[in-house]
């Protein structure tokens, strides 16, 4: 972040994103929504929960639900022994872990205007990208701004047939 960037916008957090990869998609979550980023954590599976709920993590005594973004985005499962990383976000008063493939840097997107999601993106991906200004075409990559609230809003239908481990 540069002083110029701060001065030009007056709001710096909205332009700073904690970034990560899910498959080949490059996502970002506004830094003020992210509590921390953790390596793979031991997890307790929750039988009968939605398929996207991978398990429960003990985060210093707090029980945190881990939601697999690959499942939420309709992407194929991680290959082989690749372990997911945890992006711990706070949404609607709750702490939830987003399971992602790899963690990127915190980047400043000042000066880049967001665009609506291209219409040909898969529906499930479009659904989780912030409306209106969710896609930021950066110089070397295209950043999709994740709508964390929607990402963790797992349909709570019990006994989802795909949910059994």
């Amino acid at each position: 972040m540069t002083a110029a960037a701060v001065a030009s916008t007056g709001s710096r957090t909205a332009e700073q994103y904690c970034t990560f990869w899910v498959a080949d998609l490059f996502f970002g979550v506004a830094v003020d929504e992210v509590q921390e980023v953790l390596r793979h954590q031991p997890m307790t599976p929750v039988p009968r929960a939605d398929a996207a709920v991978t398990g429960l993590i003990n985060l210093r005594g707090q029980i945190v639900t881990a939601v697999d973004l690959r499942v939420r985005l309709g992407l194929p499962p991680r290959e082989g022994d690749q372990l997911p990383m945890n992006v711990i976000v706070r949404t609607r008063g709750e702490v939830v872990s987003l399971l992602v493939d790899d963690i990127g840097d915190v980047i400043d997107t000042a000066g880049v205007d967001g665009q609506p999601a291209p219409a040909n993106m898969p529906r499930k991906v479009q659904d989780l990208v912030c409306k209106d200004r969710g896609v930021l075409p950066l110089a070397d990559a295209i950043l999709l701004v994740l709508d964390a609230d929607r990402a963790v809003d797992v349909s709570t239908t019990p006994d989802n047939p795909g949910g059994t481990p």
């Binding site: 709920v53 709750e94 797992v154 709570t156 239908t157």
Partner: peptide, 16 residues
């Protein structure tokens, strides 16, 4: 300890 919103619909769990 309470469990998250995502699991509230599962009646068989009281918490963790």
């Amino acid at each position: 300890k309470p469990i998250g919103r995502q699991l509230k619909a599962l009646a068989m769990y009281a918490g963790a």
